Amino acid sequence: MKSLGEAIKAGRLKKNMTQQELAEGICTQATISNIEKAGKIPAITLLLAIADRLDIDIDELYYLMGENTTKNGKIIKKVKVLCSQSNHKEAAALLKEINEAELETINEKKEYYYYKGITSLVAFHNFSDALFYFNLSNDTQGEGYISIYDVLGLSGVSIAYSMNDEDEKALVYTERTLNILDEFVAEGYEKSDTNDIVRTYFNSAKIYSKMKNYEKAVSLSSMGIALQQL
């Protein structure tokens, strides 16, 4: 298979599905057409839904999706999928294949450190390693704009403190996270960032709920729901 679009079309035809049937409940028929014919790259959640409906291994599609990226880029994309599926231990093992010295861009470094942090925290409950990597991500100077990993890095610190029952510190970083998230959203963002934004609202809501600020928790949850519905 030469491209992601060809792989999806082949899987659809194997199932004797029309584009409309594949799209039903997932996206529009036009979106499937754009993926198959124009080589459009779908968001991760959309790709997961398509792979599930076609009974295609997500890894096969994801490698095709990253066909023209670097080796490290392909690994990070696969790590992102694994984390979205709550396979953090497998993601952590895959991250070991990355040579940190070969990371070329600021964003690659921020992504790498963030995923090192979140896998340390979720898979192994290693609070100190998680904070170390989240702070590395946050301390890596940006490229003149706010990226989703500027948001996620701060959110990671707040989650780590909350899991360690250092709730006051967690609240400080949650407030910082929401401030930078407001800036990120105001500047405009890619549709593929939506799930990370919604997840940030949800994780922030959990921390406010733990602090018994239920009004704020409900407000943040409502914002996340509204954004997902859009």
Rank of each mutant, 00 (worst) to 15 (best):
A10E: 08
G11H: 02
L13C: 01
Q19M: 14
A23G: 06
G25F: 08
G25K: 13
C27K: 01
T28C: 05
I32F: 00
S33M: 04
L47W: 00
D52W: 02
D55M: 04
Y63R: 04
L64V: 01
M65N: 01
M65Y: 01
E67F: 02
K74R: 11
I76N: 02
K78C: 00
V81N: 07
Q85C: 11
Q85I: 02
Q85K: 11
K89R: 11
L94A: 03
L95D: 09
E100G: 08
A101E: 15
A101G: 10
E104Y: 06
I106M: 15
I106K: 15
N107D: 12
E108S: 11
K109V: 13
K109C: 09
K109I: 07
Y113C: 10
Y114H: 15
Y115S: 11
K116R: 15
G117S: 14
V122K: 13
N126A: 15
S128V: 12
L131K: 10
L136F: 04
L136K: 14
N138R: 12
E143L: 05
E143H: 12
G144W: 06
S155L: 12
V157S: 14
N164H: 11
E168M: 10
Y173D: 07
R176M: 15
D182E: 15
D182L: 15
F184M: 04
A186S: 12
S192M: 10
S192T: 05
D193Y: 10
D193K: 09
T194W: 07
N195G: 10
F202N: 11
A205R: 06
A205S: 11
K206S: 11
I207V: 15
K210T: 09
M211K: 15
N213C: 13
Y214V: 10
V218L: 13
S219W: 10
S219T: 09
L220Q: 05
S221K: 06
M223N: 13
G224Y: 13
G224H: 06
